[in-house]
């Protein structure tokens, strides 16, 4: 009796997603990094909540307060001894990662930077995935004119040197009409222009790969029997596309999401270094690019803190993404 139930149960759970999860769990590292990612996620959410509360109350952000203002006594006296203070246990806990150029806690800054990384990574990838997925589906499924337009669009975009495209877009969204329009939106209070800027740049630049993959996959899927069946039942294109075709290509979307996530948080560093990224709030990119004036004076802690956080988050997303690919796309695994 029990044996039978078990068999039945196993047979029941053999949905592709469960199957994937089973495969995913086999990798110890994958689990470890998933937990790490989760920790980062929680940090980011906490930082975001704190920020929203502070904005709501109209307070200055905590990361902007100097340690002296918060009642710590680091080394009273000259300003320049207070700033750039090396990591110290004397100012536990906010000073354990040292103070930055402005006498502010590096710990609070990397903490807030986690939020920036997630906002940029999540919304940037979200936008790029949405564009890539929709266009890919349309191109692959509708064919003909839609296909040709989309293929033309992405082959044109792909042949522009991507650095140039990125910087040009970054300049556009930071200046001129778009920036003015954005500044008046209610959301501008919560998501700064710099963040919006990077999200748009990532979203509009990195959808090409996914679009291509989805289109190719849809071209295969749409000839399958069940799609033909749905068509003969008289279902509309839209319904078939999103309800029947999409689930079959969704693993591509998930894998691509993780790739774009990494690209987005790395681009934040480069764009901020070039002066077109985040500027209103602390971010890892900002801490790293300020290090160009600090490292040679032996001030390594802001760079080390931001670099390490960036490294750990990217590493976990990369590894999780890899493991997901292996789990979702078993053909690729030996």
């Amino acid at each position: 009796m029990t044996v039978v139930t078990e068999t039945l149960a196993t047979a029941e759970v053999r949905s592709p997603w469960r199957e994937a999860w089973r495969r995913y769990r086999k990798d110890r590292f994958a689990k470890l990094f998933l937990v790490m990612f989760g920790v980062f996620f929680l940090l980011a959410v906490t930082a975001q909540i704190i920020e929203f509360v502070e904005i709501g109350q109209g307070n200055d952000p905590t990361y902007d307060r100097s340690l002296a203002q918060m009642g710590y006594e680091v080394s009273p006296g000259k300003m320049f001894e207070e700033t750039h203070h090396a990591p110290t246990l004397k100012a536990f806990p906010l000073g354990i990662l040292g103070l930055n150029w402005n006498g502010k806690s590096v710990l609070l800054h990397v903490f807030h930077g986690t939020k920036v990384a997630f906002v940029v990574g999540f919304w940037g990838s979200m936008l790029s995935v949405l564009i890539g997925m929709t266009l890919g589906l349309m191109a692959g499924f509708l064919g003909k004119f839609a296909d040709e337009t989309v293929v033309y669009l992405y082959s044109t975009l792909a042949s522009i040197p991507y650095l140039l495209l990125m910087l040009a877009l970054a300049f556009i969204f930071r200046e001129g009409k778009v920036a003015e329009w954005y500044r008046d939106l209610w959301i501008a209070k919560y998501v700064s222009l710099g963040l919006f800027n990077i999200i748009m740049v990532i979203g509009l630049t990195y959808w090409v790969t996914l679009c291509r993959l989805v289109r190719a996959e849809v071209l295969k899927v749409r000839e399958l029997d069940y799609v033909n069946a749905a068509r003969s039942l008289g279902f509309g294109n839209f319904r078939i596309m999103f309800k029947h075709v999409l689930p079959n290509v969704f693993h591509l979307v998930i894998i691509n999401f993780s790739l774009t996530f990494v690209i987005a948080i790395k681009s934040e560093v480069i764009l901020t270094f070039l002066g077109v990224g985040v500027d209103k709030e602390p971010s890892w990119g900002q801490m790293i690019s300020f290090a160009k004036n600090e490292l040679m004076r032996g001030i390594w802690w802001p760079l080390a803190a931001a670099g390490a956080m960036l490294f750990l988050l990217t590493l976990s997303v990369n590894y999780v993404g890899d493991a997901l690919r292996d789990a979702l796309d078993p053909k690729l695994k030996d």
Partner: peptide, 10 residues
């Protein structure tokens, strides 16, 4: 997973 800017600076 390391940022190119970190590689260069360090």
């Amino acid at each position: 997973s390391i940022s190119s800017l970190v590689y260069i600076l360090v």
